[in-house]
């Protein structure tokens, strides 16, 4: 086998391999949607996170703007501290409302951000003050039954 032919094939092979890695990163993965090198960190305390997991998306108006990077339990406030890494292209007002939502009826849970009207934006390391916990099915059903019961009571 000629040296040059061999070099050509090996070159092609390496280019193919690197191209495959690029395709995996850009087309299959989410490297283009969310680049962690330009990000800032926000956190929020939630009374109940339900089934929220690390790496769950943070969405605003349905657009992914960040990801959950850490979930800790706080022994001071006895609730969950959720840390999010946010795309630095998107800044949110100080009075942004964060709630844990579910995509579809049985889909994965994510954090939804609803922007407020404050002039001051949230900075790196800030805490979102206004949070809304996850819906827990048992509580939901319990509340529904309780309401039903009180309705029945009042109708009597």
């Amino acid at each position: 086998m000629q040296r040059t032919t061999m070099d050509l094939w090996v070159g092609l092979f390496v280019v193919m391999g690197i191209a495959a890695l690029m395709i995996l990163s850009l087309k299959v993965g989410n490297l283009n949607v969310y680049n962690p090198s330009h990000s800032y960190v926000l956190s929020g305390n939630f009374e109940n996170i339900g089934g929220l997991k690390v790496r769950a998306p943070v969405k605003s108006a349905g657009v992914v703007v960040g990801r959950v990077t850490d979930i800790q339990f706080s022994t001071q406030t006895y609730d969950a501290v959720v840390t999010m890494s946010m795309d630095s292209r998107f800044l949110f007002p100080k009075d942004t409302f964060a709630s844990i939502l579910t995509s579809g009826l049985l889909g994965e849970q994510y954090i939804g951000l609803a922007a407020g009207g404050d002039e001051v934006k949230l900075k790196d390391g800030d805490k979102i003050m206004k949070t809304n916990s996850a819906m827990v099915l048992e509580e939901l059903i319990g509340r529904f039954l309780f309401n039903k019961a009180s309705e029945d009571d009042s109708s009597l």
Partner: peptide, 19 residues
Amino acid sequence: FWSQMQDSVDFRFDIMNGF
């Protein structure tokens, strides 16, 4: 097909770890 894939395949955790 593509968007759901991109939503759940993470660069750092899935692709880098596989690599």
